[in-house]
């Protein structure tokens, strides 16, 4: 099973394509499908077939939504691809991956603490994971553009 199979699997879920410099393939995916994509990747290629490198959350204030990018590295080719999804800024909820992919823990905890995204089903989410106490007490998420931090 080569890298082509992995791309065709990702493509079957995608609703849009793009590129992040330098030539990292980007697949836009519905937020409800993100967990399903990872389940399919694990089922077809196993845990040794890829790893989740990082989760990048960006507050797109003008568009009223939060963008979540899952950067995964396909093994053994070591090619980085991006799964991108958008969730509403007012109610930023998405399914957690932590029970099927433990490597998502650090990224989900950080994104929750700094951006306020709720990963449904992650029991380890807490405020103050990174943010200082005064920011937590005010109920602010530092990486939101209107946080005032």
């Amino acid at each position: 099973m080569g890298v082509v199979d992995k791309h065709s699997l990702l493509e079957s879920f995608s609703v849009g394509r793009g590129v992040v410099k330098p030539s990292r393939k980007l697949y836009i995916i519905e937020p409800g499908n993100v967990r399903r994509v990872f389940e399919a990747l694990i089922e077809k290629f196993g845990y040794g077939g890829f790893y989740l490198s990082t989760i990048v959350g960006t507050d797109l204030r003008d568009e009223g939504r939060i963008r979540l990018d899952y950067y995964i590295v396909l093994l053994p080719e070591e090619e980085t691809v991006v799964l991108r999804t958008f969730i509403p800024r007012e109610n930023p909820v998405i399914d957690s991956l932590v029970d099927i992919l433990p490597g998502a823990l650090s990224g989900e905890c950080e994104t929750h603490d700094l951006l306020g995204v709720v990963f449904r089903g992650n029991p380890f989410l807490k405020r103050g994971f990174f943010a200082p106490r005064d920011v937590v007490e005010k109920g602010e998420y530092p990486l939101r553009k209107d946080s005032g931090v």
């Binding site: 040794g48 093994l75 053994p76």
Partner: peptide
């Protein structure tokens, strides 16, 4: 183990010590 290293997103010498061939310099 190899699959523990990849499923927990471990990188660098930690992963390479478990036989995972990842190195950004190479790829």
């Amino acid at each position: 183990s190899y699959s523990e290293a990849t499923s927990h997103s471990l990188v660098g010498p930690t992963a390479r010590g478990s036989g995972v061939k990842i190195d950004s310099r190479v790829s």
